[in-house]
Design a protein around this nucleic acid. Structure first.
Lengths: 229, 229
DNA sequence: TTGCTAGATTAGTCTCCCCTAATCGGCCCT
DNA sequence: AGGGCCGATTAGGGGAGACTAATCTAGCAA
């Protein structure tokens, strides 16, 4: 009874959903998401974030340590993962069933994720064969709120000489995604780190017979897994 | 230049979109949508509507005659028809491509219509073969904002003896739609009005060999076109 | 013509979520 | 240990959009 009452999930506002998602991403590695990082990600002024942080911690979705930052509570994490599942299922559905390009789906999913029902997402997931990854290689959380956590290395951090498989790329910038697709650096591609220039210079990778020069900024958005051989 | 400036369409809020849709429906036959009718349709208190009406008429989306009601301006009508196109394309897409039942799509479309892009709606429309009608038989406005206006008769008003084709049914109530589907009263069905009982009594119709008794309230939500013998 | 009433509007609040300006606190550097 | 600085917070305010309570008006009925 107590549990049942606590679980009645009154719907979260768009704003709250966005905050939780951003806090999830910012606190995923390491502990705290800071006010100014959240503000930057959401394109808001820091005081707006302070205000929302107060409300979110009062409703138990986040834990706030003043002047340090915030973390999600289990409840907040569940809500965030639900939004991430929605986002990623939507992205995949749009590419697979409606002919969107992978560089084009982020914005659309960003708006739809606040409006769809659980029912619709599960129907889409079923139509997609209960997929595990979105078009950019990001793992899709399960309905139960579990998410695959694989340690990936950004291309910028990978050691020279390593054999890698591109696993995931950041999805927010369409132009960057188009460029990556042109260069053939899409999830599943196998590459070898041939060289890296000093002073934050580019990483040189080999794709089969071909060579690619990848600047640091771009390399930081390409996430890889080491492969044997 | 003047026209171009005026046309810059800053996005409308969800609320505004809902008001415009409701005003479109209420003023479609006859002239004015009244404050209390709008309030009833949107489940709001009348003063809330008065306030919004003021804002909408200031922005040129509606024409307000105090104590009489409101009508859409051409600009408001365009916006309303755009929302109706979205709603109906969504309803059809959900039934055709995601396995929704016709009684189940209204709510979902109601939320999605505020979040989708024009792009997505046109992709859905293309995937559906640029359809003309939604699952309940309602005409889908074109991208250009044209809508088929056929004079339909509600089953409750149809003369006894008339041969009819069911063309359209109101979509808001799932239970009613399920019942209509059970009774076989779906768009495209041909029927004959066999009788009508007095004092707002039921209409009796023949479907091929079978007979259906349709109460007045229900009959008012079934819209038909006369067919020659 | 007068008066009543239903419906519309105005007055005054509230919540949500954003803003700018001002203040505060943690922490590094000397 | 003391200053400064940057980032966080508090103070104060605004728009959108809802509400209740109070007031107004159009039109019907006597």
């Amino acid at each position: 009874m107590h549990a049942t009452l606590r679980e009645v999930p009154q719907p979260l506002s768009r704003s709250v959903e966005d905050y939780l998602k951003v806090i999830y991403h910012l606190s995923s590695e390491g502990g705290f998401a800071t006010t100014s990082d959240i503000a930057a990600m959401l394109a808001l002024a820091p005081p707006s974030v302070s205000g929302m942080v107060k409300r979110l911690s009062e409703t138990g979705l986040i834990e706030h340590v003043p002047y340090r930052g915030v973390q999600l509570t289990p409840q907040g994490r569940r809500a965030a993962l639900k939004m991430i599942r929605r986002h990623r299922v939507l992205e995949l559905y749009l590419t697979q069933h409606l002919g969107y390009d992978w560089d084009d789906v982020h914005q659309e999913a960003e708006r739809l994720e606040h409006a769809v029902s659980d029912e619709l997402i599960e129907r889409m997931a079923r139509a997609l064969g209960d997929p595990q990854y979105d078009p950019h290689g990001a793992p899709i959380p399960t309905v139960e709120g579990e998410i695959e956590e694989t340690a990936l290395v950004s291309l910028d951090d990978a050691p020279v000489g390593a054999g890698l498989e591109v696993r995931q790329v950041d999805d927010a910038d369409p132009a960057r995604l188009r460029y990556l697709a042109e260069q053939g650096l899409t999830p599943g591609t196998r590459i070898v780190v041939a060289d890296r220039h000093p002073f934050n210079g580019p990483t040189i990778v080999r794709l089969g017979q071909e060579t690619r020069v990848v600047g640091q900024e771009l390399a930081r958005t390409v996430w890889c897994r080491a492969i044997e051989a």
